[in-house]
Design a protein around this nucleic acid. Structure first.
Length: 589
DNA sequence: TATGGGGAAA
DNA sequence: AATAATTCCCCATA
């Protein structure tokens, strides 16, 4: 390492922070930075983070003070911090909680209070908001709480508008601190088992307990709703189960697809004292509504046509739920926001590996589900052996001469396809498979044609969306027991949580740079069985694939995965003088 | 009860 | 900004 300064950060006045990944203090700085900044770019040497309003509000909701954050920036910063940054960070963070919601003596009315005249005036003048806000007259009979005293300036708000108002205010730049009480649901007797059915002792991990405590907050005002952020494989389901057990109320669990529904039901049966008839499945094929019900988002947002209502929204009101769990809350479909806005009196627990949404609706999640209550650095979990240490390597290879002309003359979308289907990728895949002989390997791709070809070349079975469930089960079990070592899979790998463990994944093509997809694939595939896992991405050099690969990697680096870039100059096993250039950290074990 | 097709979504 | 593939829902058939 050159220039060891232990000052890995360069903090700039435009709210970006550059991280020198080669600095010995880089890991520690990253850990601190990720609590209040978002990763934007992550090429080999310098990573760019951005301090956003939302990242600061999450930090504020978690109890960080601006002074603390500035202090840690200062500690790692190579140059003095820009004054303007400190001022704007303080200003932004102080806006969280500048407006607070409280109960009143009336059942259906809340009090939105502030200590700041300017904010009061701004809301009073706001064309859309003022319709929802009733100026509070201290002479009126309507009682606001005096113990502890609420801020003197404020409005009355219909309970009905609780969500809408929070949504609109966050867009104005005022994330509301919601101190109004939540509704208690019907009681439910549920305890975690201390052994799994096959006699294994089952213990909840400390960070899972901490997550639950941070979420429930001993039922203090302003707690009982929010999001827990844990890496894939860290046991988010257990957090959900533990929250249910701690709370002891009827619960509705919402997930992304039907295999996730089945997974939750399996876990509920295995790890809690609930009886089978207390657990319901509400999906396309079954419509059970029971004290604990697991449903897909899709069934809730389904409607016969664009004009109709959502016929399954009734599920949300059909029982007196004490808790709604939003699994993979970063994938919450947009129409669910509307209904979530109406459910502000329910306890809401979001579970996710990332707060980033591809559609940029992070603020909706913040205002309607709730702020981040807990996360744990990926590094900590890795260090304690809860999740595998994963290495990401990107291989870059040239297009074959014969395809360079077709590439140059193709239109934009064909370019990407030609780059993706570069046949040299097959050589690299073969090389990597040989290198990891004996391990369970997944080859993942985007195009069925390409996958069929490589499946034939490698003599490895192919699994796609068309593969019927019975055939999948056969492939899964063979892969699990090891009689199949290499499995070629399409996008099914993104969703199939029943896919068995693998320790090596080779991605030969991917979709348009979705960060989530990348993380999902990696997280789902690389379970903590082994100490080390490898995730290879193969892309064509000097093609449009390079742009997308950058975006994809953002997320991985943010999560703390390290990756390196290898240039492919032919198979190093047969090439007498391989000059493979490598950058980033070495990954060879 | 299973299977296949159409439409929508992210 | 965009592709292709997948999955989910419901409904119609047998």
């Amino acid at each position: 390492m050159f220039n060891p300064t232990n000052k890995p950060l360069i903090v700039q006045s435009d709210s970006t922070v550059l991280l020198d990944v080669h600095d010995p203090g880089a890991e520690e700085a990253r850990r601190s930075l990720s609590q209040f900044a978002e990763l934007e770019k992550s090429p080999e040497h310098i990573h760019t983070y951005r301090i956003t309003n939302l990242s600061l509000w999450n930090a504020a909701a978690a109890g960080f003070s601006p002074e603390e954050l500035l202090g840690s920036l200062q500690d790692f910063s190579r140059f003095p911090l820009p004054d303007s940054l400190g001022i704007s960070m303080k200003e932004t963070m102080n806006r969280f909680g500048a407006l607070q919601l409280f109960p009143t003596s009336e059942d259906k009315v809340l009090y939105l209070g502030t200590r700041q005249k300017a904010i009061y005036a701004e809301l009073e003048a706001h064309p859309r908001l003022k319709k929802l806000l009733i100026p509070y007259d201290p002479q009126s009979a309507r009682g606001i709480q005096t113990e502890p005293a609420v801020p003197p300036l404020g409005f009355l708000v219909q309970l009905l508008h609780r969500g809408t108002i929070k949504q609109q205010l966050i867009n104005l730049g005022y994330p509301v601190e919601d101190m109004a009480p939540l509704r208690e649901g019907s009681p439910l007797d549920i305890t975690l088992q201390d052994r799994t059915p096959n006699g294994q002792p089952f213990e909840i991990r400390d960070y899972q307990t901490q997550s639950v405590q941070a979420f429930l907050g001993e039922k203090r005002p302003g707690t009982g709703f929010g999001t827990i952020v844990l890496p894939c494989g860290a046991g988010k389901t257990i957090v959900g189960l533990a929250a249910m057990a701690e709370l002891g109320q009827e619960t509705l669990i919402l997930t992304t697809n039907s295999s996730a529904v089945h997974q939750w039901i399996r876990e509920l049966r295995e790890k809690t004292t609930l009886e089978e008839d207390q657990i319901g499945e509400y999906t396309g094929s079954k419509k059970q509504i029971r004290p604990v019900t697991v449903a897909t988002y899709q069934i809730l947002v389904w409607r016969p046509d664009k004009e109709s209502d959502f016929p399954h929204f009734d599920l949300l009101r059909s029982r007196n739920w004490g808790l709604v769990i939003y699994d993979e809350v970063h994938l919450l479909p947009a129409p669910m926001f509307r209904v979530t806005a109406e459910l502000q009196a329910l306890r809401r627990l979001g579970l996710t590996a990332t707060l980033v949404r591809e559609d940029g609706l992070e603020r909706e999640v913040f205002s309607l589900v709730g702020p981040k209550r807990f996360d744990i650095p990926w590094k900590d979990l890795e260090g304690r052996g809860w999740i595998a240490q994963a290495f990401c390597v990107e291989y870059r290879c040239d297009l074959p001469e014969a395809r360079k002309i077709p590439y140059a003359t193709a239109d934009r979308r064909q370019k990407y396809r030609i780059a993706s289907e570069n046949p040299i990728k097959y050589d690299i895949a073969e090389y990597l498979i040989a290198k990891h002989r004996g391990e369970s390997i997944l080859v993942i791709g985007q195009y069925l044609d390409q996958l069929r070809t490589i499946s034939k070349e490698l003599g490895a079975p192919l699994l796609t969306g068309e593969t019927p469930q019975t055939e999948r089960d056969v492939l899964y079990s063979k892969f699990r027991e090891g009689s199949i070592k290499v499995l070629v899979v399409s996008k099914v790998a993104n969703f199939a949580i029943d896919l068995p463990d693998a320790s090596v994944a080779i991605q030969i093509s991917g979709s348009f740079g979705s960060r989530q997809e990348e993380a999902q694939r990696l997280g789902r595939i690389l379970r903590p069985k082994k100490q080390h896992s490898f995730f290879y991405t193969i892309i064509s050099r000097n093609t449009s694939e390079e742009e997308f690969s950058l975006n994809r990697q953002k997320f991985l680096t943010e999560q703390g995965y390290r990756y390196s870039i290898e240039i492919w100059d032919g198979d190093p096993r047969t090439d007498p003088a391989p000059h493979t250039r490598s950058s980033g950290e070495k990954t060879e074990a």
